[in-house]
C-alpha cells in the first residue's frame, strides 16, 4: 500500500461539559479546549502502525475546518503523520459536505485506504465514513476493532450490536475506527518540534468546487431537560423497599 488518508476533526475536548447558548443558536465554543476527535487519534494510530509494519509508505492527515484546525493537524504530525492537508472553511459542515471535500482530496492523492473515526464526538453523526465510501464507490468497513491487510484486501473485524462481525473488502476502501482498535500513542516533546518542519498544505474549500451550503436548517439548539433530583438511601433494605414500592423488583 502506498498511501493512507486519515480524517482529523477538530472538536470540543471530550472532558468539556458543553453549554448551550441562551439564544438557542448553538453551543458555547469560545475559550473552550479543542482537541483531535478521540476516534480520529485511533484511526491515525492504526495508519501509523500499518506504516510501521511496512504495509504503507505514507500517512496523510486531512482536516476540514477553520484555520485553527492546523493545531490538530500539528498534533497528528507529531504523532507521526508524514504530512497534512487543511481544507479551510469557516462554515459548519454537514457530513455530506465533509465527504465531498474528502473525495476531492482522494481524487488528487489516490490513496489505498481512508481511515476515519466512527463518529465525531461533537455532532455524533457517524455519517462521514460511509458517505465518503459511497461517493468514492468503494467498500466501507465501519466500527473496526481489528484490521488486517492481506494483499489487495483488508480483513476487518467490526463491533456490531450482536457481537463481532468479520468482513473482507477490496482496497481501496474506507475504514472507520471504533474504540478498541488500538490505544493511541502519546506525543513526545521532540516529536512536537519535528512536526513543525513537516508539510502542512492549506487549501480553500471553495477552490475544490465544494459548496459549504447546508442542506439541513438548524432551527434550535437547546439543553436537555434536567432529571428530577433523587434521594440517597442509607442501606440495602431501604433501597430494595423503595424499588418494591415502585413495582420495579
Amino acid at each position: 500500500m502506498r498511501k493512507i488518508l486519515v480524517g482529523i476533526k477538530r472538536v470540543v475536548d471530550y472532558n468539556v461539559r458543553v453549554r448551550v447558548k441562551p439564544d438557542g443558536s448553538g453551543v458555547v465554543t469560545d475559550g473552550v479546549k479543542m482537541s483531535v476527535n478521540p476516534f480520529d487519534e485511533i484511526a491515525l494510530e492504526e495508519a501509523l502502525r500499518l506504516r510501521e509494519r511496512g504495509e504503507a509508505a505514507e500517512v496523510i492527515a486531512v482536516s476540514i475546518g477553520p484555520e485553527d484546525a492546523q493545531q490538530q493537524l500539528r498534533t497528528a504530525l507529531a504523532m507521526g503523520a508524514d504530512r497534512a492537508i487543511l481544507i479551510k472553511t469557516d462554515a459548519v459542515l454537514e457530513p455530506l459536505t465533509a465527504a465531498q471535500a474528502f473525495l476531492a482530496v482522494i481524487v488528487k492523492e489516490n490513496p489505498d485506504l481512508v481511515l476515519v473515526g466512527k463518529q465525531a464526538i461533537d455532532d455524533d453523526a457517524a455519517q462521514t465514513g460511509p458517505m465518503i465510501a459511497a461517493l468514492w464507490d468503494r467498500p466501507q468497513a465501519t466500527f473496526a476493532s481489528k484490521v488486517e491487510i492481506k494483499g489487495g484486501t483488508a480483513v476487518v473485524t467490526r463491533e456490531v450490536d450482536a457481537g463481532l462481525e468479520t468482513i473482507e473488502v477490496d482496497l481501496p476502501a474506507v475504514i472507520s475506527a471504533d474504540l478498541r482498535l488500538n490505544e493511541p500513542r502519546y506525543v513526545k516533546l521532540p516529536d512536537i518540534m519535528k512536526a513543525k518542519k513537516k508539510t502542512l498544505d492549506v487549501i480553500d474549500l471553495a477552490t475544490l468546487g465544494v459548496s459549504a451550503e447546508a442542506g439541513l436548517k438548524c432551527v434550535l439548539v437547546e439543553p436537555p431537560k434536567p432529571r428530577a433530583k433523587g434521594i440517597m438511601v442509607k442501606d440495602v433494605a431501604e433501597l430494595v423497599d423503595a424499588l418494591k414500592k415502585k413495582g420495579l423488583v
Partner: peptide, 14 residues
C-alpha cells in the same frame, strides 16, 4: 442529540 446529549438540535430538511 449532539455533544453526548448535552445539546439537543432541531433540524429541518427540505
Amino acid at each position: 442529540p449532539t455533544y453526548a446529549g448535552n445539546a439537543l438540535v432541531t433540524l429541518e430538511a427540505p
